[in-house]
Nucleic acid binder design. Sequence first.
DNA 1: AGTATCTCCTGCGTGC
DNA 2: TGCACGCAGGAGATAC
Length: 275
Amino acid sequence: MPELPEVETTLRGVEPYLKNTKITQVTIRHFSLRWPIDQHLAEIITGQTIHRLYRRAKYLLLECDSGTLIIHLGMSGRLRVLEASDTMSPEKHDHFDMTVANGYLLRYTDPRRFGAILWTESPIDQHPLFAHLGPEPLTASFNTAYLFTKSKTRRCSTKTLIMDGKIVVGVGNIYANEALFSAQIHPKTMVNQLTEDECERLTNSIKNILAQAIKAGGTTLKDFRKSDGKPGYFAQELSVYGRQGKACIRCGSNIEHYKEAQRATFYCPTCQKLK
DNA sequence: AGTATCTCCTGCGTGC
DNA sequence: TGCACGCAGGAGATAC
C-alpha cells in the first residue's frame, strides 16, 4: 500500500516524463473513485502544460496552466508511464490515461478505488484537503519541540498521534509501527505521558525510517517505466509490522499484536514497555 | 473542539 | 471447486 515513500518514489519516477509537456489526450474509464472524477476533467486539462510535479502529504500534484491536478493513490493505486505508441490495452482497473506531447502516457490503476483524481483552480494551500495538514515529516518544522508541544494538548495514544495528518503527514500504519519500535515506545502510551526525550527519539525515528525507505525506493526507479504492471514500490525491510509471534530483532522476545482504531498494531513487549 | 468510529472498495486467504 | 466470510487500510465524514 502506498505510504509516503512510495508516493515520493512514484513522483520521482514519473516526473522526468511529464514535466514541461503538454497534455494531448485524456481517457477516463471509471469516474467513481473515492470521490467522482470531474465529468469535464478531460476537456479541462487537455491542451494544458504540466509545469511542475510535487508532493504534499501523500498527494501527487501536477501544476498546470490554470490549476492543479491532485492524485491520491489510496490503498491500491499505482501510476505507470507507458509509451503511448505501444500501449497495451487497458485492463479492468486501469481507470485513467493521460497522454502527453512527447509520446508518453500516464496510466492510473486502482483496484480498490480508494484513490482520487481531483482538479482545483485554487491555490493548493487553500484547498480543503490541504488547509489543515500538519508539517512534512522530513522538513525542519517537524521536530522534537513541535511534537512535544502537540503531545501536551492531546489525549490519545502515541500511535494515533503520529498517524494524525493534522500533527504530521505521511505516517501510515506500517511506518507508525516501525517508528514506534525504533523509538522503543509502546504504541498505547498516552501522549501526555511522553517525555521530551521520547519525542526526540520518535521524531528522529520517523524521519530516519521514511528517509531510508525513500532511498531504497530510488533503486527501483530505473525500472519504473514498465508495461508489465510491476509496481514501482520497493520491498521494505520491516522490523515489527506483520511479525507477530516472531522474534524481536533486538531482544528475541515474541512480537505481539492487537488492533487499535481498527488498525493492526505490532510491538515488542520487552523493548516497548508501557509506562 | 477533541476523540472515536464509520465508511468507501476489491483481492486475497481461510474454513467449510 | 466454490462459496461465504473476514481482513487489509488512507483519511475524510460522521457521531459522539
